[in-house]
């Protein structure tokens, strides 16, 4: 009888993300918000020191959360706890791994710690999710060891247009890749700056080898349902919940609309009486240096 046990394999790492499909992952800054998220039916929470809307408003360098806060969140909820590390900050990632978070988000929402290199994620037993604005970026993150991809959108705006653009871009590029012949894929790999074998795998299967969520600007049940109809496996909601008038009701409503994304009557029902959505900023009003999606490459 064989009972060998193997942890932290690619399958175990991407497997947790597979279990989150169809769900909503909510940004939280403390244990109280984490509890609200869990009670609303979130599939996981994302711990960070300030929600993106506040990072944007307050400015300054945004970093990993205080370990005390992460410990409190882990103790408070039974669903998976993710936490953000700065791009390239492998020591923040080591710290988060030692805290036993379930997933690390190497995130452009925090201030990058390295403008050249991302974290070598293969060296970690904890899985990583990374942001991407296009297919090449997604494949480069997967090459570095990411086990889950989220399209970036523009965090902290409540403007869903960039999220739409990024998920459409990634899925459109995958469809275009699938239409190519094998000999054309060599050039595609060069253009995407990604390994040929990975490019070929995506072309053949018509999908990324890992789960693809959407993030950055989702603020309403209809936003979430639209992202799901566009082909996302699930949704991250950041400032959209806890910067709104009634976080408890809005969190529940977004969970409901994400699960029943194809049913306009349910999305309509979920959209009623939620109070004010986060005020939001139009992405076009943001000067380019203030756009988070342009961090990471």
């Amino acid at each position: 009888m064989t009972t060998e046990k193997t942890s932290a394999t690619p399958l175990v790492k991407s497997g947790l993300a597979e279990m989150l499909k169809g769900g909503v992952i909510m940004d939280v800054v403390n244990a109280e918000q984490a509890k609200i998220a869990e009670d609303a039916g979130a599939v996981a929470v994302m711990a960070l020191e300030r929600v993106p809307a506040d990072i944007r408003a307050q400015g300054g360098v945004a970093r990993m959360s205080d370990p005390d806060l992460i410990d409190q969140i882990i103790e408070t909820v039974s669903i998976p706890v993710m936490a953000k590390a700065r791009i390239g900050h492998f020591v923040e990632a080591q710290v988060l791994e030692s805290l036993k978070v379930d997933y690390i988000d190497e995130s452009e929402v925090l201030s990058p710690a390295d403008y050249v290199n991302h974290i070598d994620k293969w060296g970690f037993s904890v899985p990583f999710v990374c942001g991407a604005t296009n297919l090449g970026e997604a494949l480069r993150r997967i090459t570095e060891g990411a086990s889950m991809i989220r399209s970036k959108g523009e965090a902290g705006t409540g403007d869903v247009s960039e999220a739409t653009k990024h998920i459409r871009t990634i899925l459109g590029e995958i469809r275009a890749l699938s239409a190519k012949s094998d000999d054309e894929l060599f050039v595609s790999a060069k253009e995407l700056q990604a390994p040929y074998e990975l490019v070929k795998n995506v072309a053949k299967n018509g999908k990324l080898p890992v789960v693809l969520f959407v993030a950055g600007g989702v603020a309403t049940p209809a936003d979430a349902a639209m992202m799901m109809q566009l082909g996302a496996d699930g949704v991250f909601v950041g400032s959209g919940i806890f910067k709104s008038g009634d976080p408890v009701a809005r969190a529940r409503a977004i969970v409901k609309a994400t699960a029943a994304f194809n049913d306009p009557a349910v999305v309509a029902e979920a959209s009623r009486g939620l109070g004010e959505a986060m005020v939001g900023i139009n992405v076009n009003d943001l000067p380019a240096p203030h756009r988070l999606a342009e961090r990471g490459w």
């Binding site: 009888m1 064989t2 009972t3 060998e4 046990k5 193997t6 942890s7 932290a8 394999t9 399958l11 175990v12 497997g15 947790l16 279990m19 882990i74 998976p80 706890v81 791994e97 036993k100 978070v101 379930d102 997933y103 037993s125 904890v126 899985p127």
Partner: peptide, 24 residues
């Protein structure tokens, strides 16, 4: 435990074995 304790393993049925994943 947490994701750190997730693993792949082979389970034993009465008359066969199979590889599976234990995730949280």
């Amino acid at each position: 435990g947490s994701q750190a304790n997730s693993f792949e393993a082979t389970v034993q049925y009465e008359d066969t074995t199979e590889p599976v994943a234990f995730i949280r």
